[in-house]
């Protein structure tokens, strides 16, 4: 897994300004999205179904026409200079879309050709080996398992050696083992200098591999932040006070702290916001002492990205 959470370089490789998309049925999928994707980073876009994640990716890649706004990739406009921008981008779509009758190496070679790269059997052989598909090169894609198909899609997306890789829900419907496998593939790609943008439903995925996390809901980016900063900035922390002697109820003098008593009466949990100037811990501990409770141990835990995400989306609704 990723050890450092600092992107290699901080220049944006994709610059999105005021991006709007209204579909023919009137649905406004994107509402003036501004977003910079930094060179060499792994950016996770989190959001519920219908938040606009796929629309955003599709516009950058040229699959959907924007209603307004601009997308610059590597300094080039993605509509006016689509040849340059698309050459830099690889896309792994959400659906397992693969031609039924092609064999693996041919379908990957087709992708490479489509992006204007000359045939290179050696490169494709190495790419397939890297994605544990070495022994499947001559297999028809329709005989592969779902996980293998997903790998073929990644191989296709990487066949033209893109600088930016979009993974739309790469691990949706994939078992735990394969998901971890996929994460290590992504990690290796990042090590090769590929900028990776992934959309996901799985918070743990973003938490495990992303450098930055963007939360998108109802066509708007609610927050985009370095993962650690985001968690520190928005995260709630919990202080668990373990007591030497069990109690039945929380003493009235501690009511203002809104403590939660564990079922066995042996610990009290205090939730506080790290963003606030005063966390209230000192007062709490003084009050606990004044109430005559004897402490056995103290521990703190930070809320997960999932909690942050749920809170953000709830607040937006």
């Amino acid at each position: 897994m990723t050890e450092t959470n600092t992107p290699v370089a901080r220049e944006p490789i994709v610059r999105i300004r005021g991006l709007n998309k209204t579909y023919e049925n009137g649905h406004q999928a994107l509402k003036g999205v501004d977003l910079d994707i930094l060179n060499g980073e792994i950016l996770a876009l989190l959001g519920p179904n219908g938040a606009g994640k796929t629309t955003l990716i599709s516009i950058i890649c040229g699959l959907v026409n924007a209603t307004g706004g601009t997308v610059m990739v590597g300094g080039y406009d993605n509509v006016l200079e689509y040849r340059r921008t698309r050459s830099m981008i690889g896309l792994v779509p959400q659906e397992l879309a693969l031609g039924a009758f092609e064999v693996v190496e041919n379908t990957v070679a087709l992708s490479r050709g489509l992006f204007g790269k000359p045939k290179d059997a050696e490169f494709i052989k190495n790419l397939l080996a890297k994605l544990s598909l070495g022994d499947k090169a001559a297999s028809p894609v329709n005989r592969l398992s779902g996980g293998m198909k997903r790998r073929v899609l990644i191989a296709k997306a990487l066949s033209h050696e893109p600088r930016i890789l979009f993974l739309d829900e790469p691990t949706a419907g994939v078992d735990v083992e394969l998901r971890k496998d996929m994460w290590s593939v992504i990690d290796e790609l990042r090590a090769d200098g590929v900028t990776i943008i992934l959309t996901t439903h799985y918070i743990e995925e973003a938490e495990a591999i992303a450098d930055r996390v963007g939360v998108i809901n109802a066509g708007e980016i609610l927050v985009i932040e370095d993962k650690q900063v985001l968690m520190e900035k928005l995260g709630k922390k919990q202080l668990v006070i373990e007591l030497r002697n069990t109690i039945d109820t929380v003493p009235d003098s501690l009511a203002k702290h809104e403590l939660q008593l564990s079922a066995d009466g042996s610990s009290l949990t205090f939730t506080y916001d790290v963003r606030s100037e005063r966390t209230g811990i000192t007062t709490l501990l003084n009050d606990v002492q004044a109430a005559g409770l004897v402490l056995k141990d103290l521990s703190t835990s930070q809320s997960s990205l999932e909690d942050i995400f749920v809170n953000l989306v709830k607040a937006d609704a």
Binding site: L63, I89, L91, L110, S111, L114, G116, K156
Partner: peptide, 8 residues
Amino acid sequence: YEVLSAPI
């Protein structure tokens, strides 16, 4: 999708 996202 592949044809549509290719520089072609």
